[in-house]
């Protein structure tokens, strides 16, 4: 057990948890932040995705000790808490997803991708989304939403 300082969605927290506890459970159980969700615990699906210092990462395999002092953003903190992030708006406008359980991975990875590459090709998207699963099969809409968020009409 250790006291670990975390910064999540701009707020500072000190949590008393095992240092090997994955960030996922700290966010969910200690901070009651629902958005990263458990999908596999193996970094194979992306349901637990958070953004850590600009990168979309899998919180289910990331020990909490490794994020001490770093900036963690969850889906509901993406727009700064008050506004929706434009990427979120694009997904809403395109009416993407069926159940939506996986969407942390897709929306957060799309955001991280577009921050670094504002006009991604389909190949860029494929690379960025390689580690993600959408069991329902909402991929077609996901790609439409990313293109919309990037202001692109056609796939390139």
């Amino acid at each position: 057990m250790a006291n670990i300082d975390l910064k999540v969605n701009g707020k500072s927290h000190t949590v008393d948890v095992d240092s090997d506890c994955p960030v996922l459970y700290v966010l969910r159980d200690n901070l009651e932040l629902n958005n990263p969700r458990f999908g596999c615990g193996l970094a194979q699906c992306g349901a637990c995705t958070v953004i850590l210092d600009g990168d979309a990462v899998r919180s289910c395999v990331l020990p909490v000790s490794s994020v001490a002092g770093k900036e963690v953003t969850t889906l509901d903190g993406l727009g700064g808490g008050e506004k929706l992030h434009p990427v979120q708006q694009a997904f809403i406008d395109e009416q993407v997803f069926q159940c939506g359980y996986c969407l942390n991975g897709w929306v957060m990875s799309a955001k991280a991708l577009l921050d670094k590459n504002p006009h991604p090709t389909d190949v860029d998207m494929e690379k960025a989304f390689r580690g993600l699963i959408c069991r329902c099969g909402s991929h077609v809409g996901i790609y439409r939403a990313v293109r919309r968020a990037a202001g692109m009409k056609e796939s390139v």
Binding site: N34, N35, T74, Q88, I92, V96, F97, G100, L103
Partner: peptide, 14 residues
């Protein structure tokens, strides 16, 4: 349901 889900404000059984 989709705006709330995408905004990260939805509650699932988990």
């Amino acid at each position: 349901d989709l705006p709330l889900k995408i905004a990260g404000k939805w509650e699932y059984v988990v």
